[in-house]
Design a protein around this nucleic acid. Sequence first.
DNA 1: TTAGGTCTGTGATAAATGTTACTGTAGGAT
DNA 2: ATCCTACAGTAACATTTATCACAGACCTAA
Lengths: 211, 211
Amino acid sequence: MQHSLKTIFPNFSNELITTIEENGSLQDFEAGTILMRTGQYIKNTVLIIKGKIKIYREGEDGGEFLMYYLQPGQACAISMICTAKSEKSQIMAKVVEDATVMMIPLQLMDKWMMEHRSWYEFVIETYRSRFEEVLEVVDNIAFRSMDERLEFYLKRHSDACGCSEVNLSHQEIATELNTSREVVSRLLKKMEQRGLVKLNRNQIELLNFNH
Amino acid sequence: MQHSLKTIFPNFSNELITTIEENGSLQDFEAGTILMRTGQYIKNTVLIIKGKIKIYREGEDGGEFLMYYLQPGQACAISMICTAKSEKSQIMAKVVEDATVMMIPLQLMDKWMMEHRSWYEFVIETYRSRFEEVLEVVDNIAFRSMDERLEFYLKRHSDACGCSEVNLSHQEIATELNTSREVVSRLLKKMEQRGLVKLNRNQIELLNFNH
DNA sequence: TTAGGTCTGTGATAAATGTTACTGTAGGAT
DNA sequence: ATCCTACAGTAACATTTATCACAGACCTAA
């Protein structure tokens, strides 16, 4: 196997790894693919092996309000929760960097909860961390103004990729924050004047982001 | 036992009910009591037997941004998620109507997942429904303007209590929506002019709310 | 090189929301 | 009745965010 499951999911027991390899199906998706749509029934739990997947809420006007990103070693909490009841998805999932994922049929996801302690713990931890992340999002839109939200957004991005450059256009950022490009441009300009960022085309360098 | 667990939690198996009665501790709280604070470690899972508990996010300025209400037959998803890891709470829980709750120590909550199918299903369903509710909250603040949010807020209240009167002051509503009383007063007045509500002191009657 | 696209910057203006200040009213306590 | 307090209404103004309009910069393909 090209990508070792054991490396990406270090907490999984060996038997669990074997079971996943036997029963899951490994699939590749190109950037831009929509893995899950609002209102769609979910049939699989998704483990991320490679790439990056954006989980967002779609507005009527085409807004793509960012909830969080999924990276290797993570799983989609929504798909886990919904599969358990075979419910409709309430969110959208889009591949933003070419991805490899492990699809696990819903019956197994449920069955393993009882059989594999490490699976159970993984699922619970996934619920917890995603719930927390969504709560933080609520905090931001409920209590903070756009400039603070933008700073938080940039920080999340740099934390996620581990680098200090964010390669996005102002329009893309605006879409994910559900505001307009002009507002983002203006706020970024102010941040540049404060020495927080350096602006290039399609790229924002974060400078003193340790406050 | 004064309140029959079996009536309030009809899906629990008989053995589970017995186990809960043996191991849980029944406690009463007066309206106004804070059951859980942001940053506090959680030691128990809470099942609601009677009353109403408000789950909210606290702003720095004292805002009490409403996430959802817990009613009899429900449980606090956050406490379940956090107990599983013995993590800090990210939210506040306040009793808004005198409540009776069953406290379940964290080790048992975890143990029962393996031993009682009906407990497992209850926990999963709790996660799912709360996650969904929070997603709906995100939807509202991300995509809707204050007048729509206010309508949604009132509808949620009347749905929750099953009646068409909401007995809250404008100030209380404003606090939960993280806006100011003046804004709420203005918007309610407009709604009254549109024939959607009738305004009384400390009470809002919903009229044609079936749209 | 030129043409056409995307990305960015910025002013002018509009709309929504927040803030301040003040008024009146209802109800409870004395 | 009188006083006090919480609640509600509303005008004027400030601030934030959204929208419209347009110009210049950069990139790529022909």
